[in-house]
C-alpha cells in the first residue's frame, strides 16, 4: 500500500456501500429483469396516442440511489409532426 493509499483509507467501505445499494434493489420487486422493457413499451404506447415521435429517439435511464431512484425518459419530438392525436383530444 502506498503512503497515499494510507491517507486515503481503504476501498472496502466503498465496496460495502455499493453492494448495499445494489442488493437492496436487486432484492426488491423493482429488479424484475424486464421492468425497464415493460415501462418503455407502456410509456411509448401512452405517448404515441398523443404525439408522434421516432421510437429510436427515446432514451430511458435508471439511476438507483440509496433512498430514491430516478427514472428519466428523454423523448425527442420533431416540431413538424406534432400533435396528431393531441389536437383531437
Amino acid at each position: 500500500m502506498s503512503l497515499f493509499g494510507f491517507f486515503r483509507g481503504g476501498s472496502a467501505p466503498v465496496a460495502r456501500e455499493r453492494l448495499q445499494i445494489l442488493l437492496a434493489h436487486e432484492r426488491s420487486a423493482f429488479s424484475q429483469p424486464d421492468l425497464l422493457g415493460v415501462l418503455r413499451e407502456e410509456i411509448l404506447a401512452a405517448l404515441s396516442r398523443h404525439v408522434s415521435f421516432e421510437p429510436d429517439k427515446v432514451q430511458i435511464k435508471m439511476d438507483r440511489g440509496k433512498s430514491v431512484s430516478t427514472l428519466a425518459v428523454d423523448i425527442e419530438i420533431p416540431n413538424s409532426h406534432r400533435a396528431t392525436g393531441a389536437a383531437a383530444a
Binding site: G9, G10, S11, A15, R16, L19, Q20, L23
Partner: peptide, 16 residues
C-alpha cells in the same frame, strides 16, 4: 487487508 480497509471485513459480508 480487511484490517487496513482494503478488503471487505467478515462483518461487512455478514451484514450484507
Amino acid at each position: 487487508a480487511a484490517a487496513r480497509g482494503e478488503m471487505l471485513t467478515i462483518d461487512d459480508v455478514l451484514e450484507i
